[in-house]
Amino acid sequence: MSHTLNLTINGTAQEVTLDDPRVTLLDLLRERLHLTGTKKGCDRGQCGACTVLVNGRRMNACLALALSHDGAEITTIEGLAQGGELHPVQAAFIEHDGMQCGYCTPGQIMSAVGLIAEAQAGADPERIREGMSGNICRCAAYAGITAAVLQATETLTEEAERA
């Protein structure tokens, strides 16, 4: 039996028909919609490489059954930059060298966007490290990642105050 679901992905409404209910949100994005920015690391919810925003909240796409998220708004790393301008979190990761090999980076950035939106960590490096613990970096670029999230938090807070 095939199943149809509707998703808004990076602002674009899409209707997807699945011939198998086993498809995760991660495999749907990568294998069917060819949005390969979202990475598959462990596929078990342990590494965070697959982090996307579902209705604005960060989640592991590998442990999300696509059908269960029918109607959701999904934001992936491909949807962050607007009009050719990097998202402040992306810019901060570059500025602070928050990566080495780069494989975990899309997940790190999506997780940071989600973390900042949750507004629980503020400018406390300890709370940022704790809040980012669902994203493993095999190259251990953690110092740069923490600095990037701190800076992006400041930038986004200033932007919100101006708006």
């Binding site: 919810g45 989640m59 592991n60 442990l63 980012m132 613990s133 669902g134 994203n135």
Partner: peptide, 9 residues
């Protein structure tokens, strides 16, 4: 428990 992502789900 778990991580920020997992606690959201």
């Amino acid at each position: 428990g778990a991580s920020g992502q997992l606690r959201n789900a």
